[in-house]
């Protein structure tokens, strides 16, 4: 089987079928996709094209029907349930449209939670949580409860929680879906800087063309297959762009 050397994520012939008989849905119908370490890839496509399913299978939340996913060279197929749990907890960070923060815990406690569950000593967990909150520029909100934070801030806390374990891969589903456009832009700038400054590999699903354009590469799903893929080359600076003669 084909396997890309040194890839952070390698998806080969991936299919996912839900249900049987009349309720049978082929959500993924043969996806091939390789993501290099530090690459930021966006997935677009109509509603129902299989975007979320792809994230869930890559993240080990759903088993594939056929094909394989390799994270950092390790096949998900070779992992037993315990190993899969560890992979989800340590190697993959998830960020969803609904921020999914625990309302009774402070921002810092929410961020530290994946480490605490994983048995990391409390003092170390809190130091790392503080560092992660610093990365998302929310160090001064550590003691706030989610209800005391704006939507954009809550999403940034969710991102801090997702990266606190230094995951190989950050999976992001519609991160700006619940945010106004200005706040959404800040969240996107944060994801971009995680890739640029910390080498974080990111796979993001979005409906928003502006968000997708932040990525290095764009994959378009149609009915469970990658219909089109495109690299987005680094561009010119603002001055060059604005001075360009379009006539």
């Amino acid at each position: 089987m084909r396997q890309a050397k040194g890839a952070a994520v390698d998806v080969v012939g991936l299919t996912k079928v839900f249900g049987e008989g009349e309720t049978r849905v082929e959500a993924l119908r043969g996806i091939d996709m390789t993501i290099a370490p530090g690459e930021f890839v966006a997935v677009m496509g109509a509603s129902g094209s299989g975007k979320s399913t792809l994230l869930h299978v890559i993240g080990g939340l759903e088993p594939p029907t056929d094909g394989d996913v390799r994270i950092d060279g390790r096949s998900l197929r070779e992992l037993n349930d315990d190993e899969l749990t560890v992979l989800r907890r340590r190697r993959i960070g998830f960020v969803f449209q609904a921020f999914n923060l625990l309302q009774v815990l402070t921002a810092a406690e929410n961020v530290a939670l994946p480490l605490v569950i994983d048995g990391v000593a409390e003092s170390e967990a809190h130091a790392r949580a503080r560092a992660a909150l610093d990365r998302v520029a929310l160090a001064d909100r550590s003691a706030h409860l989610p209800g005391e934070l704006s939507g954009g801030e809550q999403q940034r806390v969710a991102i801090a929680r997702a990266v606190v374990t230094n995951p190989v891969l950050l999976l992001v589903d519609e991160p700006t879906g619940n945010l106004d456009s200005r706040t959404g832009e800040k969240v996107m700038a944060l994801l971009r800087s995680l890739a640029d400054d910390h080498g974080q590999t990111v796979l993001m699903v979005t409906h928003d063309a502006g968000d997708a354009a932040m990525a290095d590469r764009l994959a378009r799903l149609r009915d469970g297959v990658v219909a089109d893929e495109q690299s987005l080359p680094a561009g010119r600076d603002a001055h060059e762009l604005l001075g360009e003669d379009l006539s």
Partner: peptide, 20 residues
């Protein structure tokens, strides 16, 4: 595809142009 390349360029320019 062409429009996405353009939008990427503009978005990156915006992100980089902090002192614009």
């Amino acid at each position: 595809r062409a429009a996405f390349e353009r939008l990427h360029e503009v978005t990156q320019a915006r992100a980089r142009a902090e002192d614009a």
